[in-house]
Write a protein that binds this DNA or RNA. Structure first.
Lengths: 128, 128
DNA sequence: TATTGTTATACTCTATAACTATA
DNA sequence: TATAGTTATAGAGTATAACAATA
């Protein structure tokens, strides 16, 4: 049941991402960096469940658009310190708001009671 | 939240499928055919959300192993009538049982009440 | 010599297009 | 000529391996 539902959700959020000029990976990275600065690209890759080589292009583009900051650590110039910028946070918030409002199409089918149980159950299973 | 959860579920069911010598697509096809005979491969592809060219290899293999039946329709020899065999149903049931028991690792975190609400909510949103 | 990040290569999966056989 | 199925080709996405820079 989860597979078709997730497919629909992803399809539905595509236009919202496009309106904010974000790819799925760009959005995922912004969300991860909004939860806190990360010290290495490898750590970020792990946090978003991606290969370290897979996010490089994404980081290049986000940096070009000043949505993230990415500079060599002065203490170890091999590593890149990563942080979201104010502009990046603004884009992320806008996209997230649109996505969450789109999700109402599904969550709106539930009663307040069901909705709270559903989200709590999902959260518990996700963090298991 | 759904994405990482589904990823884990899929990863967890892989060994169960392997033990029954099934690919993900093979399992999906057997499940679809177990819900009822299908008249054309295109219809089956649509039912499992796949391209019609994508399931041909799967059908070849399932047929070789006598898990499905696939014969030209006498009334229109262009179309292939598709049906699961008894052997196919047995394999599907075995795999499904293992998969569902594996899912207990997650559903077991919920109370009986939560579990029933969760599954009902999921079902309603899936069919929307 | 080991590690971070990058680039280059190969592989898998999927989608598109051309082909065969029936109608 | 149109349709079901098949095969061949091309494209996207991802993973693996080689490389450059720092330590």
């Amino acid at each position: 049941m989860l597979t078709p539902l997730l497919r629909e959700l992803v399809a539905a959020e595509k236009p919202a991402l496009a309106r904010n000029d974000l790819t799925m990976w760009g959005y995922v990275v912004l969300c991860a960096l909004d939860r806190g600065t990360v010290r290495t690209q490898a750590a970020l890759a792990q946090a978003v469940n991606a290969d370290k080589t897979r996010i490089i292009g994404t980081l290049d583009e986000l940096q070009d658009r000043n949505l993230i900051e990415r500079r060599p650590d002065p203490e170890d110039r091999r590593v890149r310190l990563l942080a979201i910028t104010d502009a990046g946070r603004a884009v992320k918030e806008a996209a997230q708001a649109e996505i969450q409002s789109g999700e109402e199409r599904w969550l709106g089918l539930l009663t307040a009671e069901e909705r709270s149980v559903f989200l709590r159950a999902l959260q518990r299973m996700t963090h298991a």
